[in-house]
Amino acid sequence: MSPLDSPALRAKQATRRADIRTDLQIIADMIAPGSRVLDIGCGDGQLLRYLVEEKGVVGRGLELSQDGVNAMVSTGLSVVQGDADTDLADFPDGAFDTVVLSQTLQATRDPRFVLEQLVRIGRHALVSLPNFGHWRVRLKLLVGGRMPMTASLPDAWYETPNIHLCTLRDFVELCAACRIEVEKGLMIDGQGGAKPIASLRRANLLATDGLFVLRGR
């Protein structure tokens, strides 16, 4: 492999500012410049790189895929290979200002434990997740009688990593059960627009995804 064709370089080129995904941009806008951020399930490092380079945050990443980790480290990001289900317990209380869990909760084995860890490690947690209560999902299941596939849930049931899907209402209820405070909730629509959740009932039907700011009590 030539250094001119390394995964590192390709990752770097793929994550120029203009390329950051809309949902990640919404998260990035909620993070204070210069703060300490842990991005769990940081994927290809798009958000982390943006935060480090554009907002001067002290950024760390945790990612399951070793190939992804190696590519990110070779672009200078601080990332370790690890599993949210097992490795979050290592981190000390309040080590970060913000812990980000973007589109990952539904793929964890123990979402409740993971949520509790997020608000323990971070002063705030930013969690985004697909909404299984979206009307399109409900309709596909009701009319088609098969597991729904949508833009937010693109994989067939037998190959999806999403083993713990939930609706926005389910999520908010789990937070309450865990004594986690939902400071803010945003509903994301199909076009990537975000607006504050005024009515959970309405958001649970109309949002393709939800984004929540959480804090431990």
Binding site: M1, P3, Q66, N70, V73, T75, S78, V80, G82
Partner: peptide
């Protein structure tokens, strides 16, 4: 502040002495 990489190789413990492009790219970036 920690980065951790595991390099896929069959060269055993001595791999750190050898030409491992992924190791070299990672350390160079770091």
């Amino acid at each position: 502040d920690v980065s951790f990489v595991e390099i896929d190789t069959d060269k055993g413990h001595d791999a750190f002495l050898l030409a491992e492009p992924e190791l070299h790219a990672t350390l160079h970036g770091f």
